[in-house]
Design a binder for these strands. Structure first.
Lengths: 345, 345
DNA sequence: AACGTGCGTGTGAACGTACACATGCATCCC
DNA sequence: GGGATGCATGTGTACGTTCACACGCACGTT
């Protein structure tokens, strides 16, 4: 009763810690810590002993303890929307790889709807993860409000398209991309050109629309109100059915490839030939675009590059770099078969 | 010199902790902890005071400290591949939402190539995050090896298609899905049917192929070696160009919608009509499939459901539930315009 | 009146790591 | 040969939280 034999079986199946490693290696735990953090002043022999002990025990540093004491979470937050689409998905994948390479992990949050409450709750969640930085791939207009309201104090990057707010944004020159697409249609002789845009609270959509309108303006062609879509093929289809009832245009510039696909579907149903009767241009160059019927002329964006650069920018800022200016990411026109000269009709 | 005035400005811009909250609320830190953990025995008045203090200070619990002391990371790992595709992306999104709802966060790792080293390193990374559970959306054959080699001790779920290994897998009845698709072609009178499958180390691809072969077998039709693809539209296109040189078949069942798209592209180039000359069936029902030319007959999978169920299963296992059997997720045939009766030729 | 019982709250550990500092020892220079 | 310098390693402490336990008090029971 007086002895509970406290020394027997003191270990459960607890994960080994830094002190266990030290004991096995015959050094102090601090030396082990030094090995883990690549301290320069370690004797090669000691280093080897510690390494051996780590392998023997299958030791893994406890990230929680490390985060606690350094007060660095080594986490980058991603506020995303529509991640099932090719563009965001590709960027996120590149972000994930770049972050992992730099020793950061990712915390991704999808906001289902684009309303303010949903954005705020997503942002709130990321903050509760104490992310060190933030990448926004979402409708940004409302995100900016939320970032202010929640007093987000970490560096963040959004994809911004006009090169104005270079402080927090990765400059993707979508205006030029849209101008390229529009110019291409104008060069083919089209004078009545429609635009089916993305949702207006996406800066990407807004910039593409601006590029479209400016290019038409420069060519002194008639501009008309773009249709506000939602990025989906279905929207492109139904918008097409509607628009083709009047058919007072000979070309369409779609805000992304999916909507272009839907639109071309509507053309087929209306008995119209693409590009014989109507030319169609998309945006993004998703891998499927080359296999649409007909293969789609579109504007290629290097989404992976965008993802990598985002992380580059954030990491720079985390390391206290001041000058965060950068070259814009430039899209590129890919001409395929969905565009042709304006029909003589 | 003797006084460094140690009491002045003791606080930097440190985040408030549980003790700061306690001080403001006039209670002990333990009481604050109880509020945070929804302890039942708290006087309503005290609760309100603590809540007010939390709001006033903008306090957020430190997850690292919490993880350290509870030795629970509240993280679920996702080992993924090809996340830019619709299916995985949709499942992951559902997983993310279900996990977040349950108070878990996600750690997603993409493996770029499917080789063993890459898988192992991805898995290793997830283990270093001390994930509590694991979802695998990747070529699984090699993943199983890696899981054994690394002695993964956490519950994990893979998408498995045959209902054999119900211990660790979510049963998605893709065999039946493939049989549905094949049956549909047979019912239309086709007797020479090709199959372009996914990569063989994906269990999904394997199961779809099995379903295809078995259904042909039951109908006593000739089976031939499927083409082993890589899920991409481009592969479907080039495979199509090759296959159509002989054209000793009247229907094709593709392992996913993208390959079907590419195949139909090849048909157009070869001057063949779908479904007039050749019927095509896909798999997955991506949102774009309804707008292909022609709209694609395919097998719908509820990817979101799969994602939710995965988490449900894992959470159950984490809470010590023993009986993890479940109903299989059943795919469903969606007949559109890419299939038709065998031509009389 | 003495006793257990429950509720609401407080006190002392412990989790595993990194940082600041201290120590022992060899080396160097004048 | 003695002090300064550098290297390799060890000791205390803090990070913010939860858990096990202890405490005081009001209540009902014996």
């Amino acid at each position: 009763m007086s002895n509970d034999a406290p020394t027997t079986e003191p270990e459960r199946t607890r994960a080994p810690n830094i002190r266990d490693v030290a004991r096995v290696a015959g050094v102090s735990y601090q030396t082990v810590s030094r090995v883990l953090n690549d301290s320069p002043s370690i004797r090669p022999e000691t280093l080897a002993r510690v390494r051996a002990a780590i392998d023997e025990l299958g030791y893994r540093p406890n990230q929680a303890a490390r985060a606690l004491v350094t007060s660095r979470s080594r986490t980058i937050g991603v506020l995303a929307s529509q991640t099932v689409h090719y563009g965001p998905a590709t960027s996120i994948q590149a972000i994930e790889m770049a972050a992992r390479e730099a020793g950061y992990r990712l915390s991704i949050t999808n906001i289902s709807s684009g309303d303010y409450a949903s954005i705020k709750s997503g942002l709130d969640y990321l903050m509760s993860q104490s992310v060190e930085a933030l990448v926004v791939i979402a409708p940004q207009v409302r995100v900016f409000e939320a970032i202010n309201d929640l007093q987000v104090a970490v560096p963040y990057v959004t994809l911004e398209s006009t090169g104005q707010n270079t402080q927090h944004s990765l400059w993707v020159d979508q205006v030029t991309g849209a101008r390229l697409a529009t110019r291409h249609l104008i060069d083919l002789g089209h004078e009545e050109i429609m635009h089916i845009s993305g949702p207006q609270d996406w800066i990407e959509a807004e910039a593409r629309m601006q590029g479209f309108l400016r290019e038409l303006d420069d060519a002194e062609l008639r501009t008309r109100a773009p249709i506000l879509g939602d990025w989906t093929a279905s929207f492109g289809y139904y918008a097409g059915l509607e628009l083709l009832r009047y058919r007072d245009f000979t070309a369409v510039f779609c805000g992304n490839d999916q909507m272009a696909l839907g639109f071309m579907h509507a053309c087929r149903e209306a008995g119209l030939d693409v590009p014989g009767d109507i030319s169609v241009v998309g945006f993004d160059d998703i891998p499927e675009a080359a296999h649409f019927a007909p293969p789609l002329t579109t504007v290629r964006q290097n989404f992976a590059e965008i993802g990598r650069r985002s992380i580059e920018l954030l990491l720079g800022e985390l390391q206290g770099e001041r000058d965060l200016s950068h070259e814009p990411v430039r899209p590129e026109l890919v001409v395929r078969r969905s565009t042709g000269p304006r029909s003589g009709r």
